[in-house]
Every structure is written in C-alpha cells, then in structure tokens.
Computed example of a mutant assay.
Amino acid sequence: MRPFLEKLPVIPDASWSWLDRRLDEGLPFEWHHHPEFELTLTMNSRGQRFIGDHVGEYGDGDLVLIGPNLPHTWASRERIDAARPHHALVMWFSREWVSDLSGRFAEFGAVAELAERAAAGLAFSADVAGRVRPRVRALFKAQPAERFLLLVRVLLMLGEDGAAQRLSQTAPPREDERDDRDDRERIDRVLLHIHTHYAAGIRNDRLAELAALSPSGLHRMFRKHARTSISDYVMRLRVGDACARLSGSGQAIGHIADAVGYNSLANFNRQFKALRGMTPRQYRAMFAEGRP
C-alpha cells in the first residue's frame, strides 16, 4: 500500500470541495494527506481512526476536523445498521479559504482560530456534534450559496466547542516550512510503514531503507516533520491503540499490551502511565464507571 497525496474532487462554481461517501464493504485503511483542512462526519459505522500519532475508536456521529498535511485514515470494523452502508460526509477547504474569509470579514475570526486549533486534529464533543449533524446533512442537499453559508455556520458552531479534544500530539510544519515533494514522499513512506507495523515491531534500518537515507538522515528528517523522535511516535501509537482497546473491550490488560507491541507488561504499564497520567487499569475504570 503506497502513501499518497490525495487529489480532492473539484466542484464547479464552488470555493471548497465535498464528498458523500457510502461504502458497503467498509472504510479502508488508506494512509494519506492533503494540503486542505478536512471536516468529516461519520455515521452508521464503528472502527478506529488514525490521525497523526493518534489512534482512537470512532462510532456513529463522530465529527473531526483535520489540519493541512496531517496524515490520517479510518478503518471500519462494523456497520451499526447492517442494512445500511458506512456513511461519511466529508468537507475540504484550503488555508487560503480560511484566510480570505476571516481577513475580509472580522465576524468570521473564530473560523481562523478554529483552524489553528485543528492543526493536530480536533474531535468534537458529542453534544456539539449532535447539534451540528443536521446542519451538515442539510448542506449536502442545499443550493451552492446556501451550502456555503451552512458550512460557515457549522464552523462557527464548532469554534464554540470548548470540550473539543486535540487528537495528535504532533502536527506537520506550516507550508512555508516544508521541503519539496521528494521529502514529503520519504516521510510518507516511513509513516505508512510505522502505522502498519507498529504492533509487530519497528526496525530503524528498515525505515532508513524506505526513506533512502542514512540512519542519522532518517532521524533528522523524522524529527523535522513529526516534531518528535521515532521511538516516542511509536510509543504514542501503541498507547493510543491500547486506550481504544481498554475503553471498548473487555480484553485482559496483558493481552492488550501484547497486541499493541509490548513484550513486557511492566514496560507497557510504565509508558502508559507516563503518557496518560494513570495506569491502564485506572484508565479502564473511568469508562466502567461511566465518566468521560
């Protein structure tokens, strides 16, 4: 599977793009990025989402905003209603679109603030996502001018969500800090391999081979783009996967540790607590007791 720079659909007479995606077979793991912001509402589907170094569970009504060039994908597990397809409503808009909107109209400054917060991905609270959902569905059926106004209204509502959660611990550099396409393709090959194999083990010599760089060149490139080391990035992926399993299943903690790539339960417990501020058992107890 090759990483790719996704080419978005061009919509005639529109300043932004959208897609009504319905899949019977499920949302596939397609690790990709693009220079636009992406707002995605997922319905009738359960599975995992991968956004930067974040791994988390998603369900019906999941609503996320992803910043430019932040690698991401979804991988569905099941349909909630087996008679209906997995359904994703996807909206894309550029950084320039946000700048023009907020620069020309002071009333829309909150949209620019939301965009800055979304650089590392934002997952919106269930309450706000529920209130926004009918507006998102309505804009896909509206006429062009009304569709634009509905999108702006949705973004303004999302900007008021103080409970929105940052997803990735790292974010890509801004466009003017980035190197050429060859450099982007190198880091994409490395990230795809890490996201595909983090539970089975990551060898740095294999990553250097994929990047066509020396080991020292690989580490410099990775830290520049991911803003962290390879080992820390892999640790965050493993712990993120463990969080999804702890909150969404009754699997034994030792089994989860092994499934996400830890040979030592003690090491898993230590790294989990370092990132989450609590043990895996305490993290699971929060969900068992019905707390966020």
Rank of each mutant, 00 (worst) to 15 (best):
Glu177Asn: 07
Glu177Tyr: 05
Arg178Asp: 02
Asp179Ala: 13
Asp179Lys: 00
Asp179Tyr: 02
Asp180His: 00
Asp180Phe: 05
Arg181Lys: 04
Asp182Arg: 12
Asp182Gln: 12
Asp183Trp: 02
Asp183Gln: 13
Arg184Asp: 15
Glu185Val: 01
Arg186Glu: 08
Arg186Ser: 10
Arg186Trp: 01
Ile187Asn: 00
Ile187Ser: 04
Asp188Ser: 15
Asp188Phe: 07
Asp188Asn: 13
Val190Asn: 07
Leu191Gly: 02
Leu191Pro: 03
Leu191Lys: 02
His193Tyr: 14
Thr196Asp: 11
Thr196Ile: 03
His197Gly: 00
His197Arg: 11
Ala199Ser: 12
Gly201Ser: 08
Ile202Gln: 08
Ile202Ala: 08
Arg203Tyr: 03
Arg203His: 13
Asn204Glu: 15
Asp205Cys: 00
Asp205Tyr: 02
Ala208Cys: 08
Glu209Asp: 15
Glu209Gln: 14
Leu210Ile: 01
Ala212Tyr: 01
Ser214Tyr: 05
Pro215Asp: 10
Pro215Thr: 09
Ser216Cys: 07
Gly217Tyr: 05
Leu218Tyr: 08
Leu218His: 01
His219Ser: 15
Arg220Ile: 09
Arg220Glu: 15
Arg220Val: 12
Met221His: 05
Phe222Tyr: 03
Phe222Asp: 03
His225Glu: 15
His225Gly: 01
Ser229Met: 08
Ile230Phe: 04
Ile230Ala: 00
Ile230Gly: 01
Asp232Ser: 15
Tyr233Arg: 07
Val234His: 03
Met235Tyr: 07
Met235Glu: 14
Arg236Cys: 12
Arg236Lys: 14
Leu237Met: 06
Val239Ala: 09
Val239Pro: 00
Gly240Cys: 12
Gly240Pro: 11
Gly240Thr: 10
Gly240Ile: 10
Gly240Glu: 11
Asp241His: 14
Asp241Phe: 05
Ala244Trp: 04
Arg245His: 09
Arg245Gln: 14
Arg245Phe: 04
Arg245Thr: 05
Leu246Asp: 12
Ser247Leu: 12
Ser249Trp: 04
Gly250Met: 11
Gly250Phe: 03
Gly250Lys: 10
Gln251His: 13
Gln251Asp: 15
Ala252His: 12
Ile253Thr: 13
Ile253Tyr: 03
Ile253Ser: 08
Gly254Val: 05
His255Lys: 12
His255Tyr: 04
Ile256Glu: 00
Ile256Trp: 06
Ile256Val: 14
